[in-house]
Simulated assay, not measured.
Amino acid sequence: MIQPDATFDGTFPFAPHFTAAPGFRMHYVDEGPRDGEVVLCLHGEPTWGYLFRHLISGLSTTHRVIVPDHMGFGKSATPAQRSYWLQDHVDNLEALVLALDLTGVTLVMHDFGGPVGMGLAARHPDRIRRIISANGPTPFGQSDLFERVTANALASPWFQWIAKAEASGELEPVLGQLGFNILSTLKLNGFENNAVITDSWLAAYGSPFARPADCLGAIGWAKGFATGAHTFATPGPAADRAIRGKPALAIWGEADRTLRAEHFLPLFSAIFPTAPIRRLAGVGHYCFEDAPQETCGLIAEFIRQT
């Protein structure tokens, strides 16, 4: 876990907030006017709220931007006695949203933040105003989800490694040293913008995983896929109808080697057939790092337009 006041040489200058509502010490950023429209940003593996630092700065002048760190990531605690499956992260996010009584929420979802956010949407569609997927899958009860996940895993170096490492017993030992191999993990997933790599940037992404005991979140997400432990939400008919009527946007870095557009953008279009899709050529899985100005600009413009 990172120190609460860590700013990484001023690159993450946001006051830390904490809640015990999910049953552990969960960190979140809460920037912007209290009465502003809520933008809730959900990170994935192996990142944390630092991923959204440019979006926080850009939107918080007019919006209330809330960025939680999932259990086992960033400045949140990594309790040893908890499980780290998808459904646990949805439960934790739900507890935060209810504790803060967030309504009119624009979801901005990256990587496994997509399934976590869609799980929240299935439970509380009345609290959601917009859906924005940025290289984040949007599973929402589609009948072909398993086939798409399987086909993607066959083409993805990251998911290929997960399957091989779990079978050989290497998954936990390797990811238990994530603080030392964070850059190779990011590169394997599809990170293209080497110009942003500095000592501060590496510390921001590596220091949450200083010891094996700090890596349970990263291990859990990978292991859940290898063992089938993750449970994807299936919305009820009312929630399904409600979410399909929301404004939605997909942004996808086409150089993503972990989540292939051909497998996951159809999930988005199945829910939102008329929603815009913005493909970013040469941009990898971490679109907020590879093309921060373009990605954040697209999000800000979409919120203004809708």
Rank of each mutant, 00 (worst) to 15 (best):
I2F: 01
D5Q: 12
D9Y: 02
G10N: 02
F12E: 10
H17P: 00
A21V: 06
Y28N: 04
V29C: 11
D30L: 09
G32L: 07
P33F: 08
L42R: 06
T47L: 06
T47V: 08
T47P: 04
L55Q: 10
L59G: 05
L59H: 09
S60C: 12
T62P: 00
I66Q: 05
V67I: 04
G72L: 07
L86M: 14
Q87I: 10
Q87L: 11
D88N: 15
D88R: 14
D91L: 11
L93M: 10
L93W: 08
E94L: 14
A95K: 11
A95S: 15
L96C: 07
L100P: 08
L100W: 13
L100M: 15
L102A: 08
T103S: 15
T106I: 13
T106S: 14
H110D: 05
G117I: 09
G119M: 12
A121K: 13
R130Y: 03
I132Q: 00
A134S: 11
G136F: 09
T138C: 13
L145Q: 01
L145P: 01
T150D: 08
T150L: 11
W158H: 11
Q160E: 07
A167G: 05
G169F: 06
E172Q: 11
Q177Y: 01
L178W: 05
G179V: 06
F180I: 00
I182A: 08
N194M: 14
T198Q: 06
L202Y: 09
G206M: 03
P208D: 03
A210R: 12
P212T: 04
D214L: 08
C215E: 00
C215F: 06
T227S: 06
G228I: 05
T231S: 05
T231E: 08
P235S: 02
A239I: 04
R241N: 03
R244A: 06
P247D: 01
G253K: 02
A255P: 03
D256T: 03
T258C: 13
T258E: 04
E262Y: 00
H263D: 10
F264P: 02
P266D: 07
L267C: 03
F268K: 05
S269K: 12
P276C: 10
R279T: 12
R279N: 13
A281M: 13
G284H: 10
T295D: 11
C296A: 14
G297E: 09
E301D: 15
F302Q: 09
R304D: 11
